[in-house]
Write a protein that binds this DNA or RNA. Structure first.
Length: 201
DNA sequence: AAGCATCACAACCGCAGGCAC
DNA sequence: TGTGCCTGCGGTTGTGATGCT
């Protein structure tokens, strides 16, 4: 039995600093995309998807590392309530954070908080009071992303179109808006007529 | 000090949509 | 119009770090 094709054995597991360096340099010169060729041409013995993930989650410029701020935590909880496990959409509202990071953070910290921690329970109760519709499981949601501008616009549109009312409810606490300045800054409606109207409600 | 349990997070995998040919 | 490749998404797994007994 012949071996089909001497496939170079792909490396798995944690990335070494020198591998990061190679990938970073390659992307700086050639740009993002065509991840399969990145792995072939750069000499990295990594699969294209592994390269893409590493770049997207750790090497990309403007990645924010470190602990989540209170505003970020709050926003994640609220958006998760609204959007469900649409991590890429949620991450899109958190500058510098990646979907993987948000997902991990939710699974290790916030999920526990929301589903049981006494000290935080009160915060969550406010949101649990009025059940929010989840995003319809439409195949159009959150799958596939063309490059940035389009994607951003698409996400904003998606969130906008389904959630003006939902946001109004979510940010409504016991008869008082808890829409903070920070939340407004993160909010996709900023600058939109929709949002202006929303604020005037 | 050693062994075990749990936590936190990086990375991988399967699936599905978009796009080029 | 059909097919195959590329890429992104969400779920899951693996591994190192830390805490506890």
């Amino acid at each position: 039995m012949e071996a089909k094709e001497a496939k170079p054995k792909l490396k798995k597991g944690f990335w070494k600093p020198e591998e990061d360096l190679i990938l970073r340099k390659y992307v700086e010169i050639h740009g993002e995309g065509k991840w399969r060729t990145v792995s072939e041409k750069s000499g990295l013995k990594r699969g294209g998807r592994s390269c893409r993930l590493r770049w997207k989650n750790y090497l990309r410029p403007n990645i924010k590392r470190g602990e989540m701020s209170e505003q970020e935590k709050d926003l994640i909880i609220r958006l998760h309530k609204l959007l469900g496990n649409r991590w890429s959409l949620i991450a899109g509202r958190l500058p510098g954070r990646t979907d993987n990071e948000v997902k991990n953070y939710w699974n290790t910290h916030l999920h526990k908080v929301v589903s049981g921690d006494k000290t935080k329970e009160q915060q969550q109760q406010q949101m649990v009071k009025s059940p929010k519709p989840q995003v319809p499981s439409s195949a159009t949601m959150a799958k596939t992303s063309p490059p940035d501008d389009k994607e951003t616009e698409k996400m904003n549109h998606q969130v906008r179109s389904l959630s003006l009312q939902d946001f109004a409810q979510i940010f409504w606490d016991e008869g008082t808006f808890s829409l903070t300045t920070e939340n407004i800054l993160f909010h996709p409606f900023v600058g939109d007529d929709d949002f202006q109207s929303f604020l005037l409600l």
